[in-house]
Design a protein around this nucleic acid. Structure first.
Lengths: 305, 305
DNA sequence: AAATAGTTGTACAAACCTTATACAAAGATT
DNA sequence: AATCTTTGTATAAGGTTTGTACAACTATTT
């Protein structure tokens, strides 16, 4: 908070003038001290600078500039949006059936409409059990977007945007499930070059739901220093997601290295990019189906202590 | 512990003045000897220096500076938080003061403890205004983590983990602020090779708070297809974050290309990695200070229609 | 005991802030 | 050309803030 003198120095406008503007045009009405001294914020200073600029550079009169600023300020705080305690009933856009949800979501993503996409997800989650939504809406949608991206129908940015949106949602569920200290810890990551982490998130969520502590490292994680993390956090499971087969060789190297260093470590590999002719990688491969995940988890016998 | 004379010599403030400040603003109330002589600690001396600095360099009045200091001190010891009128005494695990929060969060990140980090953030956000937390805890913490990563003290995975955690939180606030249809749309992204998106998120949030519609593309976004997004979504502002100077050349190319294709487009550049000798990039550079953001936003005159 | 340094309280002047009124120069209107 | 409006600046009269000074007293040190 600045006094009028400091505000004057910061803006290059005489204090008298600042007061005159306030008195005459009601623009920039700063807080006051108990004694009535003006106290200007950074925003006020910025607004004063803007006014000065309009007058000196753009040739506006101060009255015009002030009017414009006032209008802008009002637009920024639209008096009352009608969602103040009052429930706005959205009767024309009724609750979408599950089958339509994916379609509508796809539309929203196509036009980068965060608000709408978020609202769709919101209603979706409030209506259907969340694993239903994941496996019948989000997973197919992500696959579809992935395909469209391969074809070039959709931009990479859209793919990015969609993952971001979903990751956001998925990650919220992480917090809901508590950890079981008797179960092993897991590490989830996409190796460098991999940006598509939805599958990784789904599997992490599956583990989390089972009570496994998951350290989620996400997309495009450098593998250097992984050993340290494994040792320090008593990691028993490492999960990689791979969607691009280009990374197969580097990943095979890494997995063999980890296996050698930590013989007891469970390594799991998921994603579309695992080459079917790579024997090593196939050995660690786990299909993208929840049923397979359940089977795998049932056979898991690396319980702690 | 120093007498008032020593404190005066160390700070360069007359003893009379120090006493007057204490009497009038209640700031810096040192311990006393049995006889009532003032005893200043190193912290007191530092606080006095801070006050002097605010008054002499920043142009604040002593009353304002004192008020700020007092507020900060109080935040550090919120002994009780009276929610609902009832004073809840939290005697075993008390509410972390703002200064400790960063430290505790750093610990939690160091040990990959999502639960704890999340809980710390939760209590933090419920206690302090959120921009306070961003600028006094999260931003410094991210810088610290960034530094430690450069030094090699911390692993890349940890850096990853921390951004993930914060991004999660920051993004939640995106939904709170409504969009103003009269303001331009903005696009926020880190170019390929950039993984540090906290600055980007902070700026996006600032814009969102002002009512600007932000399409957030996040870290490591391929720039191919950007033109299409700009056209289809009527983007008027593009914000890049750059923390690594290695990407300067590619980014300069991109910016010049965009400027050519969309002359009216506002391009903003943030982050630590903008080389000071690059004239083109410096032209678009915006400092990391909220006060500068306000100024920039005030001068923004690309209103829609 | 004298010298030095500390304490509180009151006092004061310079700097700064407040509102209200006034005024001259520039621009717009009649 | 005369008149009205706008706008930056000036001045007056009165309150506030703030650094410093002084008085009266107390404590510590030499």
């Amino acid at each position: 908070m600045y006094s009028i003198k400091v505000a004057s120095r910061k803006t290059g406008i005489e204090p008298v003038t600042i007061r005159a503007w306030e008195r005459r045009y009601g623009v920039i009405e700063p807080k006051r001290t108990d004694a009535g001294f003006r106290l200007y914020t950074d925003e006020d200073v910025a607004d004063l600078k803007w006014l000065k600029h309009q007058v000196e550079e753009e040739g506006l009169s101060i009255s015009q500039a002030a009017k414009q600023l006032k209008q802008r300020k009002q637009e920024q705080f639209p008096a009352f949006k009608q969602n103040n305690g009052i429930r706005t009933v959205n009767n024309n856009d009724s609750i979408p059936p599950l089958s339509e949800l994916a379609e509508k979501l796809h539309d929203a993503i196509d036009s980068f409409d965060v608000e709408r996409a978020d609202q769709l997800l919101e209603t979706g989650f409030s209506m259907y059990p969340f694993d239903e939504l994941f496996h019948h809406v989000l997973t197919p949608l992500m696959h579809r977007i992935g395909d469209e991206w391969e074809e070039g129908t959709i931009s990479v940015a859209q793919e990015h945007f969609a993952s971001h949106l979903f990751r956001q949602r998925l990650y919220q569920f992480f917090k809901v499930f508590s950890m079981n200290p008797n179960l092993p810890n897991a590490l989830a990551l996409c190796p460098p070059g991999e940006n598509h982490e939805i599958g990784l998130l789904l599997f992490s969520l599956f583990l989390k739901r089972k009570g496994v502590g998951v350290i989620y490292l996400g997309a495009n994680t450098p593998t250097h220093g992984l050993e340290k993390i494994i040792v320090e956090n008593d990691i028993r499971i490492v999960f990689f997601s791979m969607t691009r087969s280009e990374n197969a060789e580097a990943l095979r190297e890494l997995i063999l290295l980890l296996k050698e260093q930590f013989p007891g470590l469970k390594i799991v590999l998921g994603g579309q990019g695992v080459p079917s002719d790579d024997e090593v990688l196939q050995h660690f491969y786990l299909k993208d189906q929840p049923a397979d995940w359940e089977t795998w988890f049932g056979q898991l016998s690396v319980l702690k202590n």
